[in-house]
Amino acid sequence: MLLAPFLSPQPMHIPDGFLSPLVSIILWVFSILVIAYSLKRVNEDLGERQVPLMGVLAAAIFAGQMLNFTVAGGTSGHLMGAAIATILLGPWAAILMMTTVVGVQALIFQDGGLLALGANIFNMGVIGVATSYFVYRSIRRIAGEKSWGVFLGGFLAAWISIVVAALAVALQLALSRTSPANIAIPAMAGIHALIGVGEGLITIGALALIYAARPDLLRSSKQGVTGGNALWVGGLAIALALAIASPLASSHPDGLEWVAEQQGFLNTARGPLYQIIPDYVFPGISNQVAATILAGVFGTLIVFGVALAVAYSRRKRRLGEVRQTQ
């Protein structure tokens, strides 16, 4: 039963409320820095065709995430798309496309939170792209212009993008003390090692079609598709860091707990600031239960007041309309 949440179709999109403010904000900062750098690189490398290409392809990734295939027992597999985006347009454009996809999902469809959006962009965009770039690039280098490099590279890049993003989600939940590390990390890693296989197979299918129809899009020397050695090393570093940190954190949850407590310490450190405010909300009531009840009554009164006011003004408006039509 504890595994149930990790089996849901899109456990990757963290909603609001699950990450501590500190974790959310740090990941926002990371994501913003990477997005800013990607914008700079895309401007330099891809030229003026970039906007329509990235916009329409981002829409296609969003739509492509709906394409599913039956696995078993009512479950189905579908695409996240970070790897195929990286393979088609290179890592910098892929980061921007995943940012728009994840951004629209949060802003419009509430798939993932708004404060948590920085984390979601980081997981699915930044590290998903960086690690799949590292894997794909390495294998293409070994394979040269041979076609197996495209397919093996695509499969492994897709697999690792899913697993790495899932591990990052688990670590972030654990750091926020929302889900214990020794449950979240093995559960997310185990399930997503399988989901990643589905992502890998779909990616192979997509690459097979594109390779047959437009091999020029997959030529390894294609301009703009290279991210440079720095990103290659970055992808390697992220993959290694998560590979080492995750088993460590799940077998020694105390370590992560310690980090989380440092955050908690930061929270309590703010405490003295509040000491100046007297120890009660409303004068004369120092009891928490009473405060809760009072808040309940106060809240209910506001809600009812507003409801009445809205109903009244609506009626007045309708009466006005009736009078006008008469």
């Binding site: 392809l57 990734i61 739509a63 695409l79 195929i84 088609l88 779909i202 299918g205 997509a206 129809a213």
Partner: peptide
């Protein structure tokens, strides 16, 4: 095979988008 077919659909979607 089912996964590959879904992939082919995604690929044709991407290709048409490009």
């Amino acid at each position: 095979w089912r996964a590959k077919v879904a992939g082919g659909m995604a690929g044709s979607l991407f290709l048409r988008a490009i």
